[in-house]
Design a protein around this nucleic acid. Sequence first.
DNA 1: GACACTAGTCTCAAAATGAGAGCAGGTGCC
DNA 2: GGCACCTGCTCTCATTTTGAGACTAGTGTC
Lengths: 131, 131
Amino acid sequence: MMDKALIAARFKAGAAMADGLANCPIRDVLDQIGDKWSTLMLSLLGEKPYRFGELRRAVPDISQRMLTQTLRDLQRDGLVSRHVYPTVPPAVEYRLTPLGHSLLEPLSHLIRWADVHHDEIRAARGEFAAA
Amino acid sequence: MMDKALIAARFKAGAAMADGLANCPIRDVLDQIGDKWSTLMLSLLGEKPYRFGELRRAVPDISQRMLTQTLRDLQRDGLVSRHVYPTVPPAVEYRLTPLGHSLLEPLSHLIRWADVHHDEIRAARGEFAAA
DNA sequence: GACACTAGTCTCAAAATGAGAGCAGGTGCC
DNA sequence: GGCACCTGCTCTCATTTTGAGACTAGTGTC
């Protein structure tokens, strides 16, 4: 595991700069994968390739607009690849690249943490609201 | 490591519900810690306790408004504790709770991944922009 | 012809965020 | 007393991001 002081240092290396985010690798990457839908897409695509419509049905509360944009951004960052089959009607399949797959492993640690500690967090929220 | 299909299943368990996010523990938790500033705050506080003004100076591009709000949310979720010292002028110290500390470990995996693969992502962006 | 399917895009409203002023409550300076 | 200054905030308003839903093109079905 990475040393705790080093974690902070990695962040600060960018945070302290005048141009902030752009030069901090950690923030640059985490701002993208930490957005509202990216982790969810990556998790689904980690399971198997999906078509656009399949993803939309699997995640009913995402708007088409954000689904398109999230997939574009993941594709742009090289985490997801897009394959068009010129059938009628057209079919477009999305799948993880090797880079995308490599992200699944650290991501799973976070997901497991969230799963394990969710009850504690809910309890904390209850206490906070009561005060 | 958690099985890949299980990761997706955990997400979908909530995603497929009509009330979506509220009943998916993973999304409930990740939406908070995955926001723009939370991971940065957690990383800094993992190093040592910080005062409000110290955090603001350490992260020059956060607005006071979002700093206050991020700390409130982390406190609400039981990840950060707030200690007021009634000195003059008043001093307020923020530090990680044990729960907050436990999050640092999975978070460090993600940070290390980001650090290692940042160059690949930048390269992918370059290629994407060229097309 | 009316309708449905695909993977999107376009427009407009709502929500989240950023920028910057203001505030309370004290202390020190002259 | 009057003024500047420190702290940790909150308030207002402009900009940015996201959401909701209509609209597109090309083909097949009834």
